[in-house]
Design a protein around this nucleic acid. Structure first.
Lengths: 243, 243
DNA sequence: CGTCGGGTTGATAACTTTCAAATTTCGTGG
DNA sequence: CCACGAAATTTGAAAGTTATCAACCCGACG
């Protein structure tokens, strides 16, 4: 059974050493498979009774819309990530989540969660850990927008995505496939698409990274890490914390 | 026993209707009382084996320091709030937490959490809910820094703090006592203290709010809410979600 | 008293947005 | 395989927002 671990099991396994029983309980998170086309919303701001999902394939972005028409992308989800967890715990969702590519997910209802917690408390701890890791990413994102300039901020985001993808086997130190448009980058980084474009040029001209035709290529990984002050400690655990 | 509810129990009670058993399990979160003087760190970035705390009295701010010397305040904790949860779940803390006033807390160890979860799974759900609520605040903060200008952002923060304090009986629609300096506001909002000062003047001159000698006074609450696009849905549940 | 941290203000510089207009890329249908 | 239109990228010039630097003021406190 442990032979074909899901990305989720692999990720949680980095925090708690999961028993057979716990792995089995995790299976309920993979029962109801669905897919969504590019551009559709998996979660909608203001709607009640939302479901959560575990992303199996594709990219999703979570964002909020402001009344002035602006939007802020809060984070991106890649395979193995939860999405919409907050919207099952709250009465109504406080954010949107949109498929950036065609997407494969498993539905997780509020009941699935509560049941799994009741059966296997260690799993509850693991899910809390996963939620904390997501929060750590949001925090790092906040720090970037608040205190890093456009260049550092952009480099940081692109490095973080690379590190996350590497954990699930979808990226290397050389680069990764990335479906982001410059508009999305702008909405994630609190900048304008026009400005992102200039930043990308600067990154390219300084030999740091190239982003072309859906591929991010790290031209000088070390210098990029230094520029962005990137520390992936919060993403990377080197073994289960709870045995 | 339910007669003297702790701020924490009151807050969690907004999400799950807590049984006597669960309230009792919550009591372990209040066993080891400590206090900290103004200015000391409760949690330190990069340190291992940190404790978490439930804040009983006073204000704390959580922040990250950047190598270039800048800092970004991620959020503030007021009575009833958890702090340092992420640092017990991670091997090492990814942030600092500093007492902004003299502070009363209860220590919560990683074991306390895991035990409580094992005893009372509904409590696990409630803690996950509380963590999600904190994350929702961080997200709203992120949106503010990313997509709101200095005036809107400042108004939003001051309104949010007011709403949170009102929930624990420390504020009204008129205003509240607030130990923030303009430097702290600046570090929270991704701005400069100088600029914050100009923003405060503008808020005052437009009859929106006054911040003087440690008191925030809402001069025109309605207009402020509109300016800041403030929606406290994410703070305010009108009854337990889980019965 | 004298100092020190916080608040206040003005002038100037830096960074980012806005507006406008190409240019390129890409999916679709002919 | 090419043509077309829509969407994304690219670039320049001007405007707007916020930071930086440099004073000065003021009240708390030793």
């Amino acid at each position: 059974m442990a032979a074909v671990e899901s990305p989720l099991a692999r990720k949680l396994g980095a925090f708690v050493a999961l028993s057979e029983l716990e792995l089995a309980a995790l299976e309920v998170f993979h029962e109801r498979r669905r897919s969504f086309e590019l551009g559709v919303d998996l979660v909608r701001q203001g709607q009640m009774g939302q479901l959560a999902y575990v992303l199996a394939d594709g990219w999703v972005c979570s964002y909020k819309l402001l009344p002035n028409g602006k939007r802020q992308i809060v984070d991106f989800q890649v395979p193995g990530d939860f999405l919409g967890l907050r919207s099952v715990l709250f009465r109504t969702s406080d954010h949107n989540a949109e498929a950036m590519t065609r997407v494969e997910v498993s539905e997780v209802s509020s009941n699935d969660l509560i049941e799994a917690f009741a059966t296997t408390p260690r799993l509850a701890t693991a899910v809390l850990w996963a939620a904390s890791r997501d929060e750590a990413m949001v925090v790092e994102h906040l720090v970037g927008i608040g205190r890093r300039n456009a260049l550092e901020r952009t480099a940081h985001l692109l490095l973080e995505l690379g590190a996350r993808l590497k954990l699930v086997g979808l990226g290397t130190k050389e680069g990764y496939a990335c479906p982001l448009s410059q508009y999305m980058l702008a909405d994630a980084l609190g900048l304008t698409a026009v400005h992102i474009n200039r930043i990308m040029r600067q990154l390219r001209e300084e030999g740091l990274l190239t982003f072309r035709s859906g591929q991010v290529i790290f031209d000088d990984f070390e210098r990029l890490v230094e520029l962005a002050d990137f520390d992936n400690a919060y993403l990377d655990q080197d073994g289960p914390l709870l045995r």
